[in-house]
Design a protein around this nucleic acid. Structure first.
Lengths: 342, 342
DNA sequence: CGTACGGAGGAAAAGGCTTTCTCTGGCTTT
DNA sequence: AAAGCCAGAGAAAGCCTTTTCCTCCGTACG
C-alpha cells in the first residue's frame, strides 16, 4: 500500500522554498509580481514535496469547487453509461470532477443525494435516467444549475437535453421506403413505456404521410429478444403481409431476425429489419448485422455537460433541447454495396 | 432552472436562531451542552433556510472528506460498471461519495486523475479495469489507501480483490462432467488475453485430473459471437468429436449455440454449452439460455469498498484476495428439471 | 452568606489557501 | 539631492466550520 505520508500543505512548500505562504501561493498560481527565480524555487519545492493544493480549502475562497454531481434517477445502466461518459469527457476537459450518485429509482435516496451534493458545494448537477419520459424536477429551487440529460424534466423552464426519438423513427421508415419496402410492420416494447409509444407513433405517422398503412397492428410487448421471437410468431400466425419490420429496440430486432431465419424468411431479401439504440453487441452479433437508429447518447452527455458549464458561467440554456438521431445502415436492410445503384 | 439562491452558511442559521455560530454548530451536530429548546430553535432555522453544511470547510477540520475516488484504468465498461455499482452501494451506506474518473487506457490521463483526487483529499482510491491481469500500481506511494478491484496490482503488498477465474473454470468443467460429458472442446478469446489463458488452462487441468483429454486444441480467437460461429465451423471441419463446449465468454457461447443449431446439432442434447460472465442479455437471449460462470462483479466491488473503508480506518488488508465464482445453470447444459434424477 | 460547581452559551483559534494591503529597498525623475 | 515609483515579498484578513476554552449565572452546599 506504500507509505502513508501526511498531506503536504503550502506551508511546507513555503518553508522549503524559504518564502512566506502568500508568496508561495502567488508563485504556484502565477499571480502577483515575483522574480522568476523565486517562482522557480517555489515550484521546485512543490515538486519535491509532491504538493497538491487542497481543493477544499481553495474553494472555500473561490466559491467554486470545479466539481459537478451526476445523478442517475434509476439504476446506472446501458443508457446512462454513455451519457455519463460523454459528460465525464466534456467536464474533464474543463478540469471538473464528477460525483456519481445512483438514485436506484428511490425518491428518498435521490433526495438524499441532492442534499449531499449541495453540501459538497458542487458547481452544478446533471440528472440522467433510463427512460426519456419527462420526470418531476429533482428539486423546486437549488442554489446550483441543473441539466437533465436523456431523461427530461417536466418543467419546461429546466434545461433538458433529449434525443429526438420521433425523428429517429421517421428516418428509419424513410430508409425502409428508400429501399423499396411498403408493407412495414412494427414490434416494440411495453405500451406504457414512453419511448415505445413515441417511436411507434412517429413511424406510423411517417408511413401515413406516404400514403401507406402499417402492415398490421403495432405489437407492444417487452424490450427483449424473446418478445421479438414471439411477436414474429404472432404476425405470421395472423397471416400478416409484410416486407419490413421496424423494431422498438435492437434486442427485439435481433429476436425477430432469429425467428425469421428459423422459418425460412430471409433478411433482408424477404424482410428488411431496422432496430433502435444501435447497441454494438446486439447489432453486430445479429445475423445479419442490424440497421439501427443511434441516439448518440455520448453526444447527449457531452452537450448536457457543455450546457451545464455554460450555466455555471452564467449563461443558462433553459428549455427542452432535442438532439437528432441518426441511422446506421447495415446488412439487415440490404443496401446495395455499390452506392450508385441506390 | 429555479431561482439560484446563494449558499446558506451556518452564520445565517445562527443569526436567524439568535445564537452564535459556535452554538449553532453544536446544536446541529449534537455536541456541547445546550438546552433542548435552543437546539430545536437552531434546527428549525436550518430547516427553514435549507442549510446544508459546507463539506469542504468541515473537512478542513476533520481531515476527512468522506469521499473516495474511483479510477477505471481503461474505459468505463461492462466489467467496471457492476464493480462500480457494488462499490457505490457499500460506500453510500458509509455516507461516502464517489468521484468517478475514466482513465481511457492512457497513463498520462490516469496520473492526472490521481493527482486531482489527491488534491481533492479523497480518503481513499479504488482502481478497477477491464481485465483481470495484474497491472503496475498507480503510484509508488500515496498519502491515502488504494484498493484494486477486478484488475489486480502487480505489487503483492497492495490490496487487490479479484475473481477466482480458474476456480470458475473448474466449476464449469465439473458441471459438464456431472451431466455426463467427457469430450469437452474449448473456444475462447485472444491468446494474449490473461483471462482467456487462465480460464482455458484451469479447465484443461481439471479435465486432466479426471483423466480426460480435451476434445481438440483450445481455439483462441476473439471475444465475439462471430468468432464463436467461426470456431464451431473449424471444429466441425476438423472432424472433432465433442459433446460439450466450454467457452471463454457468453458472447462466444452464444455464437456457438447459433452455429450448432444451424448445422442441426442440438443444444444441450448433442452438445452441452457453458459460457463465462453470466451477462444477462446474452445468456437469456441465447437459444437455449446459457449456463454460465458468474464472477460476482458487484460483490467484488462491494468487498473492495469495504476493504477500502477498513483501510481508511486503519485496518488495511494487504494482498491479493481471490473471490469465488459460481456457476449459474440454465438450459444449455440440460440439467433435469427434477433434481432427484441427477 | 460566601463559595463552588455545573449548565448554557459566547469568543476565539485553528485548519489551508487566496488576496489585499503594507512595507522595504533600490531606481528614476526633476 | 530630494521626491516619487516600482518591483518584490511579507503580514494579515477572510472563507466556513469545529472545537476548545471562557464567562456568566443560578443553585446547592458548607
Amino acid at each position: 500500500m506504500g507509505k502513508l505520508e501526511r498531506h503536504v500543505t503550502i506551508t511546507d512548500v513555503a518553508a522549503l522554498a524559504g518564502v512566506s505562504v502568500g508568496t508561495a501561493s502567488k508563485a504556484l498560481n502565477g499571480r502577483g509580481s515575483l522574480r522568476e527565480e523565486t517562482r522557480a524555487r517555489v515550484r521546485e519545492a512543490a515538486r519535491q514535496l509532491n504538493f497538491e493544493v487542497n481543493a477544499g480549502a481553495r474553494s472555500l475562497h473561490s466559491g467554486r469547487t470545479y466539481t459537478v454531481g451526476m445523478i442517475t434517477t434509476d439504476t446506472i445502466g446501458r443508457f446512462s453509461i454513455p451519457v455519463l461518459m460523454g459528460a465525464e469527457d466534456a467536464l474533464g476537459a474543463g478540469q471538473m470532477s464528477v460525483f456519481l450518485c445512483d438514485g436506484r429509482d428511490d425518491p428518498i435516496r435521490e433526495q438524499y443525494h441532492v442534499k449531499t451534493l449541495i453540501g459538497r458545494r458542487v458547481d452544478g448537477i446533471i440528472v440522467t435516467g433510463r427512460r426519456t419520459e419527462a420526470r418531476a424536477p429533482i428539486s423546486p429551487a437549488l442554489p446550483v444549475p441543473v441539466v437533465y440529460a436523456y431523461i427530461g424534466s417536466a418543467d419546461p423552464d429546466d434545461c433538458s437535453v433529449v434525443p429526438d426519438e420521433a425523428g429517429g423513427a421517421r428516418k428509419a421508415v424513410e430508409h425502409l421506403l428508400a429501399v423499396g419496402r411498403t408493407r412495414v410492420a412494427q414490434i416494440t416494447g411495453p405500451e406504457h413505456h414512453h419511448s415505445a409509444r413515441v417511436r411507434a407513433g412517429a413511424a406510423a405517422e411517417r408511413l401515413a404521410e406516404s400514403g401507406l398503412a402499417p402492415a398490421g397492428p403495432t405489437l407492444f410487448g417487452a424490450w427483449s429478444e424473446v418478445w421479438g421471437r414471439q411477436a414474429i410468431g404472432m404476425l405470421l400466425a395472423g397471416g400478416a403481409d409484410f416486407d419490413a419490420v421496424f423494431c422498438g429496440s435492437d434486442q427485439i430486432a435481433r429476436g425477430v431476425a432469429d425467428a425469421l431465419r428459423s422459418v425460412g424468411r430471409r433478411v433482408p431479401e424477404d424482410v428488411a429489419l431496422v432496430g433502435f439504440d444501435n447497441w454494438g453487441v446486439m447489432v453486430e452479433g445479429s445475423q445479419p448485422p442490424l440497421t439501427s437508429v443511434d441516439m448518440n447518447l455520448e453526444g447527449l452527455g457531452r452537450t448536457a455537460a457543455e450546457m451545464l458549464l455554460a450555466a455555471i458561467n452564467g449563461s443558462p440554456s433553459p428549455g427542452r433541447h432535442a438532439r437528432p438521431c441518426h441511422l446506421v445502415v447495415r446488412e439487415s436492410t440490404a443496401v446495395p454495396l455499390v452506392p450508385g445503384a441506390a
